[in-house]
Design a protein around this nucleic acid. Structure first.
Lengths: 164, 164
DNA sequence: CTCATATATCTTGACGTCAAGATAAACCGA
DNA sequence: TCGGTTTATCTTGACGTCAAGATATATGAG
């Protein structure tokens, strides 16, 4: 009997006409996301980052050399709007973790590149981050994790059709 | 090969020392939450609500008669801070969907009560909401939904221990 | 009865986000 | 070459949220 069960019981008492089984599953996804977010924020904060700045630095890092992408590329990878990305880049630039260089191939735009400090910071942070994610999966066995991931892949495919 | 797989492939190429399987699962939870949130927002907007206002009205509605809770009770049910709840109540009060009545049992506080308009609105909205959630689960079979819910219950219990 | 402490709620200031629109440069057909 | 269209990026204004602290009332030990 967790908090979600208590909510469903209330609905069943007040609105017995509704089938709230799916509400429970979706509610648990929401609550898990909140808890996972808090857990990840702690690791980011230990490196002077937050989820937004980690997201950008990690995207640049895993893109490989020369660790530089246009703001549009970053928007495509990160599920945020262009206005949000402008803010994120502004903050990271002030912190000396990225640089804006004129895009030699398109005079309308820039490329955002990791600085040396940015590279060192994200490389250390992502190691801690992965260890932390591993700890947060502890309630599930290896087999359960595989089963869960398979179900999430199938569900997510209904919203973000896989390509290629 | 979905977007999460592409991200994991990048990490495996750039940082083969990291085991990123858990990152994939957690990333999928995040992306699902974003997609589910967008889907739910559309239904809320159709009733002139957003996720924040729906959350409060639904909590009051499912509490049963007299559809009134203290701000503290609302905070306990909704995973937000007291400051956030004050803002939410302010907006709902301006919209005429809830009322603040002095709490006869505790002069420090109030009870927040659904108005007639608030009751009618949330009762209609929640019916649409449940139907919408059902549609968003369409990618999974009934059996898969049960399996998924079971796994989420177990995982979430690691963060929010069940009581009673 | 009184005062120290606990509790309930609200206020303030800072973020991160989005939608919509502004700006500027590239591209392309005629 | 030139002007219209497309694209890349940034700006603006409005929200929702949180952390920390302020305010007001209740409670209880003496």
């Amino acid at each position: 009997m967790d908090q979600v069960d208590r909510i469903l019981d209330q609905w069943r008492a007040e609105r017995p006409d509704l089938d709230v089984a799916d509400m429970g599953t979706i509610g648990r996804v929401k609550r898990l996301q909140v808890q996972l977010g808090k857990g990840m924020d702690r690791v980011f904060a230990a490196h002077g980052l937050n989820a937004a700045s980690f997201d950008v630095l990690a995207t640049l890092r895993r893109a490989g050399p020369p660790y530089a992408l246009s703001p549009s590329d970053l928007v495509d990878w990160t599920m945020v709007t262009s206005g949000t990305m402008t803010n994120r880049i502004d903050r990271l630039e002030k912190a000396g973790l990225v640089r804006r260089d004129r895009n030699p191939e398109d005079g309308r735009g820039f490329v955002v590149a990791l600085t040396e400090a940015g590279f060192a910071l994200i490389d250390a942070a992502v190691s801690d981050h992965v260890a932390n994610q591993h700890r947060m999966m502890a309630p599930l066995t290896a087999e359960e994790r595989r089963a869960l991931d398979r179900l999430l892949v199938k569900w997510l495919a209904g919203f973000e059709p896989p390509e290629g």
